[in-house]
Each structure stands twice: as structure tokens, then as C-alpha cells.
């Protein structure tokens, strides 16, 4: 038996919007730790890891570890039927082939339940090693989204170069080229507006902008984004989910032949 009650239902709606275009089908894993997901995109270039910790739910009952295969487009359709202020409860029976999403309006005058069919998904679970990254950039998530969107109108790939002087986003295309440099800036009124660059050594990596743009669909989840890089390793683009956990996107770099 599984029963997870989330007071801030809009968080789950935002999570689905953040991942549904990258991943078609995925297993949601439920354990004593929390509600989590790990999935790759169809071409195995990117990986998304989601964690919503048990403590973040108002009520969290998970009698035994459960893996529920869901089509994310269908799940998104159902969650779109929940109001932004609704409380969402996820319910499932052990060994059942459906999951139920229950939506309660804030003043309890409307209660809906939507039952969705589960599916069997054969997915590989990858071990993500703990890594000390050589460059960690924290910046406003909207600024990062803006840069990715702007550069993708010029080129298909972005070179992200981080050094003590700042972080440079560069692209080239048929019509020309573009560079955006962000310098460390901590003299801001609100901490979430700061750009903080921690560098062990300079890093320069090339990525497909199509994926970066897809990751920025998680922008509504957090005011800040953290981009962690090491030479010749996948980048991690992380959006923290307040009080609950995170959504992390891993993207394999483009490598010169």
C-alpha cells in the first residue's frame, strides 16, 4: 500500500512539465527515503534524477518498495486536471496495475480522483558516482534559461568555459557567433540573484543546446540553478525543490574526434 499526500500539489505538476519532453516512460520508485525517478532520454545522451524526500510529504506511507512504470505524457495529462493550489495524493496497491491521483481543492469543496494504468518498463538503473566537480556555477535559473534560449537561435551547441574570471557560454552557427560571459556577482539584494563561481581548475565542455533547453523547463521549480562540470565528464544541471529534494539533469559532453 502506498499513499503520499503532497500539500503543494503544484510541485508535482511542475516536475512533470520539467521532464515529460525529455523522457517518455519511466519507473517511479517509492521507498522509505522518498519518491524518486531515474531515467534516460531515448538516445541515452541525457539522464534525469528526481528525488522528493519522504519528509516533504504531509503524509507518507510506503509499506514496501514499489516501482511504478508510468507514461509521463499521460501522467502530465492527469496532473493538469489538478488546480495549482490543490493537494495531491498518490495512491497505489502493492502489485496493482493502476495508480490513483487524488486532488483536493484548498477548502475541500472539490475532490477528484484520476486512475491511471501502469506499464511495465524495462529500464537500466545507472550508478552515478560521487564526483568532486572542478567548476560549480550557481546562478539565477531564469538567467540560465535565457542564455540557453538566446544561444539556440544562433547555433546548435554551446561551449561552456568556466574560469576564475567567469563563465562563458559560446555558440556558432550559419548566421554568426555569440558569447555570453557571466561574472561572479554576490553584491545583490536577494541571495537567489547572485552568480557564484567556484573553480578548482578551468573547465571547457561542449553540449547540445537542444538538451540544455529541455532542462530549463524545470526553471519554475527553483529560483537558482547549479551547473557542475569537470573536464570530460557529463555536466549536472540541478534545480533544488524547496524542502523536498531536487531534479538533476546529466548531459554527456560532445567530444572532439
Amino acid at each position: 500500500m502506498l499513499e503520499l499526500r503532497l500539500l503543494q500539489g503544484s510541485l508535482l505538476k511542475k516536475v512533470l512539465e520539467a521532464i515529460k519532453d525529455l523522457v517518455t516512460d519511466a519507473n517511479f520508485d517509492c521507498s522509505a527515503t522518498g519518491f524518486s525517478l531515474q531515467a534516460m532520454d531515448s538516445s541515452h545522451v541525457a539522464l534525469v534524477a528526481l528525488l522528493l524526500r519522504a519528509e516533504g510529504f504531509e503524509h507518507y506511507r510506503c509499506d514496501r518498495n514499489l516501482s511504478m512504470g508510468m507514461n509521463l505524457n499521460n501522467m502530465s495529462k492527469m496532473l493538469k486536471c489538478a488546480g495549482n493550489d490543490d493537494i495531491i495524493t498518490i495512491k497505489a496497491d502493492d502489485g496493482g496495475d493502476t495508480v490513483t491521483f487524488m486532488f483536493e481543492s484548498p477548502n475541500q469543496d472539490k475532490i477528484s480522483d484520476f486512475e491511471m494504468k501502469l506499464m511495465d518498463i524495462d529500464s537500466e538503473h545507472l550508478g552515478i558516482p560521487e564526483t568532486e566537480y572542478e567548476a560549480i556555477i550557481r546562478m539565477p535559473s531564469q538567467e540560465f534559461a535565457r542564455i540557453c534560449r538566446d544561444l539556440s537561435t544562433i547555433g546548435d551547441t554551446v561551449v561552456i568555459s568556466a574560469s576564475k574570471e567567469g563563465v562563458k557560454f559560446s555558440t556558432k552557427g550559419d548566421i554568426g557567433s555569440a558569447n555570453v560571459v557571466c561574472r561572479q556577482n554576490t553584491s545583490v539584494d536577494k541571495p537567489e540573484d547572485a552568480t557564484v563561481i567556484e573553480i578548482q581548475q578551468p573547465v571547457s565542455l561542449t553540449f547540445a543546446l537542444r538538451y540544455m533547453n529541455s532542462f530549463t523547463k524545470a526553471t519554475p521549480l527553483s529560483n537558482t540553478v547549479t551547473v557542475s562540470m569537470s573536464n570530460e565528464l557529463p555536466v549536472v544541471v540541478e534545480y533544488k525543490i524547496a524542502e523536498m529534494g531536487y531534479i538533476r539533469f546529466y548531459l554527456a559532453p560532445k567530444i572532439e574526434e
Binding site: 545522451v45 545507472l126 550508478g127 551547441t157
Partner: peptide
């Protein structure tokens, strides 16, 4: 041209 790496070549199967 640079070649796109795959995530599964960096992270091992559990």
C-alpha cells in the same frame, strides 16, 4: 565535428 557522447558510457549499470 564533435561527436555526441552517451551518458551510459560514463555511468555504469547498477
Amino acid at each position: 565535428d564533435a561527436q555526441q557522447g552517451r551518458i551510459s558510457s560514463f555511468f555504469k549499470k547498477k
